[in-house]
Design a protein around this nucleic acid. Structure first.
Lengths: 379, 379
DNA sequence: CGACGAGATGAATCGCATA
DNA sequence: GTATGCGATTCATCTCGTC
């Protein structure tokens, strides 16, 4: 079943003492049907799933029922309904297999077109997955509609979902914002198709796989929702775009694929990837990652004196710092956050940015004093 | 039931001898639940359907912006359902009612978000509708994600479907191509939200309807898939965007709406529409702006490698490119703009022109790499 | 009258660590 | 498990008031 059985053929991203307990399937491609192959993995063992399932509903090519019987291609509406049912059963089966091996705080991406994505999305919801976003890959160079009977089909849809509503999924908000020139990353991603040198060709110059996804797409998916050293599962591995990008970005992968020709192409492709390593894999962190500083530390450090007056940025609201690290305004006492909220009549308040101290005639937020403490904590 | 009972209150687009047999419901708003109201219409009597059903948002508590103002969410009773099963039953019922009144060569558009659109799409397929395209409305000015927990939800999805696989639906290929500067119209439509003067407000300046759609969206829908004098049904009429655009474009409409306040607003709105005449059906075009390129795209595209060194034009300042699209200098991390500003001690910086990469012994600004991406993203 | 800045707002499934 | 309290978080666009 395991194609690359021994050792860690593509190399673990960060070699540590964990290597001794790294499972044999890590950074390998499992050959076979994905439901059967995934039984080899322990439950809750992967951090992220990217799935590009078959969706040739109308073409009847690869579509099998769960019992492996072929679904006949069909033209009339009744048979079409029958084939939708088979597709739904197939989808339910692989999603259940995937959910078993997905960690409870992991997440899953599924890509599809209007042929299949509505069924996939509804089944995800029926199985209790919690949709986080749908993301549209807007193609800059789609195939035109030759017959002029419809709009040019210029996008595909990805669904990003957590295994449950209360999952604490990975989302690298600050990294994506830096990636996107300091603007929040949106749900529309404009990327070209996979063409040119990136597109795998066989000896005769024919493309190896009909729907090879661009590495840029996976680059963004993995940057958004995984961390270095995470394990990324792709149950429809194809020619291994997920594995190649995972290796490049210092993530581990595990793939499942039925066709030996794709496995061979993917294996060679991934072996050729130059992995990034070291500090350039560090991700941009936001304030949430900074250590917590109690407000009282400013008093302990002598950066504020008991009895000092704090004001809001406009000087409208005032409060006195008390020796125990609480604030007292005319009408309220409590933490910097609580008093800040109360004097404004608001539900909540970030006292660090609300309260200011006057120095040299200018007002500075007390957050600046917190930064001084934090810089002293750094080595 | 019929709000505007007598005559043809908003005027038939093209007066002909057919007037004598025009049904009473033409260009009126039927009050009531859409399944019940549609029983008043004969089967196979409308050419096009545009439906904006409840999305079944499942909102938690209140959401506040960073400035503590409360988001005015869509929490109306008509958007609440007990379960996915209840929503599915509702969807199946109105789609069946709509299909009865839709001509066999007509077509239907349904708009939704990830909360409901997958269920709608799957049910459309289950009922034998034939999906022609899914179209994404990419919003130029969506509401941001205030908590930084997901991607900005910047689009909605429309499904365009025929009542059967062999329907000979209307598609005005040439009109759309001309509209789109002689390029085939694509499945991604970039349009702003309905705001400003177009947004209907009540006496107190409050929005009349929480989810009023922009007329530009309906312009494209009706132009793409209907002909002058066609009858356009909107079973969730709201404040009548479909009716207003239908009248403007010389189409007939029929709406169904439960709430009297919406009916009143729509009636006044449509009466004020100046119907277009003859060939001057000039339509609003989407602005074709130069696409904004995230810095991270250079990494995705392989034009920069993680770990690469950037310098300023004189080589004085240096920074390392990290895999997530952020920069790291000796003392700072962040976006190209932020780190550029910090290393100079400046307030702001255009990272695209500040940072350079050395190739073949000469320094070139990374803006040159952006130009390469731009050229790939142009059609 | 125009420039400028403050304020408002849009279909939103929008915490987390510590006790 | 649950309760408590810190404190993080926004983009494009339009309106309106002031200078």
């Amino acid at each position: 079943m395991t194609v690359l059985r021994t050792g860690v053929p593509f190399g673990a991203p960060q070699k540590t003492q964990d290597d001794l307990v790294r499972p044999a399937w890590l950074n390998t491609i499992l050959k076979g049907d994905c439901v059967a192959a995934l039984e080899k993995l322990p439950s809750r063992s992967v951090d992220l799933v990217f799935a590009d399932p078959p969706y040739n509903l109308q073409l009847g090519g690869d579509l099998h029922r769960p019992d492996q019987s072929r679904v006949d291609a069909c033209d009339d509406a009744w048979d079409q309904f029958d084939s939708f049912e088979a597709y739904d059963a197939f989808t339910r089966a692989w999603l259940l297999a995937v959910r078993r091996v997905l960690k409870k705080d992991g997440s899953i991406w599924v890509i599809g077109s209007y042929h299949n994505i509505f069924r996939v999305g509804a089944i995800l919801q029926d199985l209790g997955f919690w949709i986080l976003n749908d993301v549209v890959w807007v193609k800059s160079n789609p195939m035109p509609n030759f017959r002029g009977k419809r709009l040019t089909n210029a996008h595909e849809t990805m669904i990003w979902a957590a295994p449950s509503k209360d999952a604490r999924y990975t989302f690298n908000y600050d990294a994506l914002k830096a990636f996107n020139d300091d603007l929040q990353m949106r749900s529309d991603w404009h990327l070209p198709l996979c063409t040119g040198a990136e597109r795998l060709k066989d000896g005769g110059g024919q493309k190896v796989h009909p729907t090879q996804k661009p590495e840029a797409l996976l680059y963004r998916v993995l940057t958004a929702s995984s961390k270095p050293d995470d394990i990324v599962l792709d149950p429809f591995f194809g020619t291994g775009t997920t594995g190649a990008v995972a290796r490049k970005l210092g993530r581990n992968f595990v793939g499942v694929e039925r066709e030996q020709a794709y496995i061979d192409a993917a294996t060679a492709r991934i072996a050729a990837v130059e992995p990034a390593s070291g500090a350039c894999l560090d991700m941009q962190k936001g304030k949430r990652a900074e250590p917590r500083i109690p407000f009282g530390s400013l008093l302990e450090a002598g950066l504020l004196q008991p009895g000092a007056t704090l004001t809001c940025s406009k000087g409208r609201h005032k409060a006195i710092v008390r020796a125990d690290g609480s604030l007292a305004s005319a009408d309220h006492t409590g933490s910097i956050h609580k008093v800040g909220a109360l004097v404004q009549g608001a539900d909540a308040c970030n006292g660090w940015t609300f309260w200011h101290i006057e120095e040299d005639g200018t007002r500075a937020p007390i957050d600046a004093l917190r930064q001084i403490i934090r810089s002293r904590l750094r080595p």
